[in-house]
């Protein structure tokens, strides 16, 4: 296994395409804890979107990324739950199935790469818990967000299918809640916490996608959450970009800001909203920020 402190930063496609606020805020908090970030030497899509078209293409795209990391003697740190789920899954499948590994390596030979199974992929959530530690995060908080009550949305691909998730309970996920509590904020419980955000249906049936996002917003509104905390670019787009559209479509009012977890943590660490790209959010976080800064 690659040395545990050596991580390549796997950005994925959705973040540079639409959600740079997640990247900005993540890099800020990782730097705060002195984590050195190394960029991928070469990159391609993790493969997830093309699994629907050709499973083999997904395996090859993921394996190529894993093999690049292996060549560098590094592990992978991702911000996207889709990338994390895919890279973890393919890593496990190829490590455990010799026939499949040989098959994939036949293809990888074409590009002078080989999958050996010497790297590990972690999503930011797992990295924060295991490589930094909740206690250390709690101790670093200088501006505890004690007057804030929020809801969490961990999303699907980090937790399910369960055989590829080695760190949290897919039916009752706890890690994001623990990380939220570490900032001093209170994390509320609500109906259908583990329900899908709807993002994978966008572009195929937008109505279903928006209905799923609406359900979530209704459920967190019912418990009076002041913000929803996400850890995935797709979930964030579903709620932040679409909140106003959903409100209009279903004649509702929400005004619930959708924050990336690193933005929440950043505030608790005393970083300024500007440094954490709060001005990139579609749902105006001004009222929330005023309340945090001048309680």
């Amino acid at each position: 296994m690659a040395s545990s402190n050596n991580y390549l930063f796997f950005l994925g496609c959705a973040i540079p395409y639409r959600v740079s606020s997640y990247e900005v805020s993540s890099r800020k908090i990782l730097a705060y804890f002195g984590i050195e970030i190394v960029e991928m030497p070469e990159f391609n899509c993790c493969g997830l979107p093309l699994d629907a078209i050709d499973h083999e293409v997904m395996l090859l795209l993921a394996a190529k990324n894993l093999a690049h990391a292996e060549q560098q003697g590094s592990n992978i740190l991702t911000l996207c739950t889709g990338c994390a789920g895919t890279l973890k899954k393919v890593n496990k499948l190829l490590k455990e199935d010799n026939t499949l590994r040989q098959h994939v390596n036949e293809h990888l030979k074409e590009v002078n790469l080989e999958f050996k199974g010497t790297t590990e992929t972690k999503h930011l959530l797992q990295f924060l818990k295991e490589n930094i530690g909740i206690d250390k995060i709690k101790a670093a908080v200088t501006k505890p967000l004690t007057n804030l009550t929020v809801a969490e949305h961990t999303g699907c691909h980090l937790l399910r299918p369960k055989q590829f998730n080695n760190f949290d309970d897919p039916e009752n996920p706890q890690i994001l809640k623990m990380l939220i509590n570490a900032t001093g904020a209170t994390c509320l419980e609500y109906v259908d916490e583990t329900e899908c955000c709807g993002a994978p249906s966008a572009g195929i049936n937008d109505k279903f996608a928006l209905q799923l996002a609406r359900d979530k917003l209704d459920h967190i509104k019912a418990v009076q959450a002041q913000a929803l905390i996400t850890i995935c670019p797709f979930c964030h787009i579903m709620y932040d970009t679409n909140e106003m559209r959903i409100a209009k479509l279903y004649n509702e009012t929400y005004d619930i800001p959708i924050l990336h977890y690193p933005q929440l943590l950043g505030l608790a660490l005393g970083l300024k909203p500007d440094e954490l790209a709060f001005n990139d959010l579609k749902v105006d976080p001004k009222k929330l920020l005023e309340q945090i800064i001048n309680p």
Binding site: E39, L60, E110, A277
Partner: peptide, 30 residues
């Protein structure tokens, strides 16, 4: 978006060698 990265002090995006991608995927059903 690529220009905005500079103003946000983000590093350039990692590149992909698309010829390698072509070689890798040329025998797939897709």
């Amino acid at each position: 978006r690529i220009k905005k990265r500079e103003t946000q002090n983000l590093p350039p995006l990692p590149k992909c060698n698309t010829e390698n991608l072509y070689r890798l995927l040329k025998n797939t059903k897709m």
